[in-house]
Design a protein around this nucleic acid. Sequence first.
DNA 1: TATAAAAATTAGTATAACCTAATTTCGAAG
DNA 2: CTTCGAAATTAGGTTATACTAATTTTTATA
Lengths: 218, 218
Amino acid sequence: MSHSQTEENYLKAIYQLSQSHPDGVTTKSISQRLNIKAPTVSDMLKRLSAKKLIRHARYKGVTLTQKGTKVALTVIRKHRLWETFLVEKFKFKWDEVHDIAEQLEHIQSPVLVNRLDEYLGFPPFDPHGDPIPTKEGLINSRYEKTLDQITEGSSVEIVSVRDHSSKFLQYLESLSIQIGTRVKVVRRIDYDHSVVIETDDQMEKSLSHRVCANLFVK
Amino acid sequence: MSHSQTEENYLKAIYQLSQSHPDGVTTKSISQRLNIKAPTVSDMLKRLSAKKLIRHARYKGVTLTQKGTKVALTVIRKHRLWETFLVEKFKFKWDEVHDIAEQLEHIQSPVLVNRLDEYLGFPPFDPHGDPIPTKEGLINSRYEKTLDQITEGSSVEIVSVRDHSSKFLQYLESLSIQIGTRVKVVRRIDYDHSVVIETDDQMEKSLSHRVCANLFVK
DNA sequence: TATAAAAATTAGTATAACCTAATTTCGAAG
DNA sequence: CTTCGAAATTAGGTTATACTAATTTTTATA
Ligand SMILES: [Mn+2]
Ligand SMILES: [Mn+2]
Ligand SMILES: [Mn+2]
Ligand SMILES: [Mn+2]
C-alpha cells in the first residue's frame, strides 16, 4: 500500500508539528502549516485515521501511529537527502533547494533512496543542519537551544536553522553566517531582545530576536 | 502555467504515437498506450484542446500544437536524462530505470534539468539508445531500420531498442546484446522470419522476428 | 458558572481524473 | 448507397482533495 503525495505531506507536517507539541497536534496548526482550510484538514484526518496512520479523537489533537511515523520519517529522509544531493553535487545554494526537494521527496523507490544515501556517503545532516533519518528510521534529536537563549559572553556554534525560507537564508549569507559558524554573544539588548554578536572576522553584528530564535546552537 | 502529471503523460503518449502516425493519433491508441478507458481519454482531449496543447476535431485524430510538442519534448528530455543519470551515476541496470524515470520526469524545475544535463556531460543518447532532446527542444531523429529488415551477410550496429520492458532488456543481456553491439546477419529464416546472427564473440544466435523488430540498427 | 470567542466538525459544492452504459458517428463491405 | 461494426463521444456516477457556510464543541473569560 502506497500513499498519495497529499497524504505524505500531511503526515510530514504532523510529524514536524508534533516535535513541539508531543501531546497532540491541532487541526488549526496543520491548516496553517499546509495552507489548507481547516475543514479540508478535518476531512483528511478522518481518512488518515481510517488508514491507521494517525490517532484522532474528535475535537482533540492528533498523534502519529508507529506506521504514520515511519512514513513521515521516510519522507523527511528523502527530502533531506535530496537537498544534500542538490547542494553537494549540483552546486545549488542552500536557499535554492527546498522547493525542488518538496517534489523529489515523493518519488517512490526504496532502492533509489538508498543509492542516493550511498552516493552521498551517508551524510548525517542536510545543508540546513537538520539530521537525516537513517534507512532504519532513526533520527538524531536536534539541538534545542536557540541563539536568543544564550547568556552574554558565551561562545556557541550555529548547528541548524529553524526557518528554511530563501529570505532568511539569504539574509544569513549577507551576514556571513552559515552552519558551523562560531559566534560570541557580546550583548543582549533588553529593550527589544535583540542580540549583538561577534563572528570569527571580529565584526560586531546586531541580530533581531526573531533571527536569533531561528538559529539553533550548541 | 504548469501542467498536471496526468496531462504530461497524455502529451508524451500523443507525441510518441504521432511518430508512427503523423496525420493524427486516435483516441483508442492513446487509451491502449496509457491503459485508460476511451471515454476518459475523450474527456482529457477536450481539456487539452481547450488549453491549446492539441488540435482535435471531434471524431478525428489529434495532433500536438507547437505548445504541446514543447511540453512533450521537455518531459521526454527529463525522462531520458534521469535514466542516463541512474545508470551512469547510481549504477542501475538499463532494465531497472524506466519506472523510476516515469516519476522523475514530472519534477518541475528547469534549472534542475539543465544542471542534470551538465552533470552528465550533455549526453546525446539515453541508456536505451534513444536521443535526448536538447534544452532548445531539438531531437535527433531515430534510425528507422530494424534488424529484421537487414539483408543476409550485412553487418550492423545495434543503436537502440523499441521495447523498454525489463523482460526484453534482460533477455538481450542474456544474449550479450547491448547498445553498440555489432551483429552480422548470417541467415534469414523464411519459415518464421527469424534471423541467425553472429556477434563479436563468434557465437551464432537465433533471434525471433519479434525480437529483431524491436532492435534499431545502423 | 454563564457566556462568548475560538476551534473543530458537518453540510454542501467544485474540479480533476477515473469508470460503465448508452448513444452517435464514421468508414468499410456488400 | 445502405447497413453494420468499430471508434468516439455523451451521460451519469465515483473518489480524492479542495473550498465556503453553518453548526457543534471546547476553552477562556467575565
Ligand atoms: Mn527543506
Ligand atoms: Mn533542509
Ligand atoms: Mn524509459
Ligand atoms: Mn529510455
